[in-house]
């Protein structure tokens, strides 16, 4: 059997949350492998350091909290020019809010970004005019999609809901051999985690670290699995939730 491992050269991939953390790491890895990347994020200055060949990286500044405007992004000529081979949904927000303060508007706002923006992107992506057959979609859930922690009712609910979307959409899109999977990282050293840790006591941070038998993850621990799921090497894998968590969830 001839193996061409994780061949992504020339593939056309859209990545949300492209300006920071894991999303940015995925963009860098894809560009280094010769893929064409469309990145969505709020702050273009955060990707000004990305180096790439001409026309390989297109950045679309956009706040995904605004669900109704997402379809318009796809009408952008340079997006519509070539059908997509992949969609990676990294944009998300983590927040710690005790249940007693979690009023409707606050939790709706988290669902808007962590869940509804992803469903809307998938809805548009799934149209034949925007995606190729055999393309691949990677959602970001979290170990919190199946587990819990105090103060995380919103985050856990959104990440759990993502898994429901993956289950259903993978069946719905199987006809076109479009695959839909989730990755569920444990705690990874990113700007988002840094913000979370700053709100906790040193003791709590240490506890979280100790809950990961292999220690806290790095961005490069998560990226290769996403590349694998985007590549044709995973063409018989769909509807799965792949945990990348240093052993966190096995305990």
């Amino acid at each position: 059997m001839a193996m061409k491992k994780n061949d992504l050269k020339g593939k056309n991939i859209l990545v949300t949350g492209a300006t920071s953390g894991i999303g940015k790491g995925i963009c860098i890895a894809l560009l280094s492998q010769g893929a064409r990347v469309i990145g969505i994020g709020r702050d273009e200055s955060k990707v000004s350091d990305l180096s790439f060949e001409d026309n390989k990286f297109l950045f679309l500044p956009y706040d995904l909290n605004n669900i109704d405007g997402i379809e318009g992004l796809f009408q952008n000529n340079s997006v519509a020019q070539e059908k997509l081979d992949g969609l990676v949904l990294c944009a998300g927000k983590e927040e710690t809010v005790p249940l007693s303060l979690y009023k409707g508007d606050k939790i709706k706002s988290l669902f808007n970004l962590n869940l509804f923006s992803g469903i809307e992107l998938l809805r548009i992506f799934s149209k034949k005019k925007f995606s190729k057959d055999n393309s691949s979609v990677v959602f970001f859930s979290s170990v919190m999609g199946e587990l819990g922690q105090p103060g995380k009712v919103g985050y856990c609910a959104t990440k759990s809901a993502v898994l429901g979307v993956v289950n259903s959409a993978s069946l719905e899109l199987a006809k076109r051999k479009i695959r839909v999977n989730a990755v569920s990282p444990g705690v990874v050293a990113t700007p988002m985690t840094k913000k979370l840790f700053s709100q906790l006591s040193d003791e709590n941070v240490k506890q979280i670290e100790e809950m990961h038998p292999l220690g806290i993850g790095q961005i490069e621990d998560v990226v290769p699995t996403v590349l694998f799921l985007l590549s044709d090497d995973s063409k018989w894998i769909t509807g799965q939730n792949i945990k990348i968590d240093g052993g966190y969830s096995i305990q």
Binding site: T96, S100, L101, P150, G151, S198, Q199, L200, D202
Partner: peptide, 26 residues
């Protein structure tokens, strides 16, 4: 306790848009 601290941080953030962290509160 730790839940009380979470409530305090959440309440102050909601009412004043001031983000306190565990170090501040200590």
């Amino acid at each position: 306790d730790s839940m009380g601290m979470m409530v305090l941080i959440g309440f102050v953030s909601e009412k004043f848009e001031v983000s306190l962290n565990a170090e501040d509160i200590a």
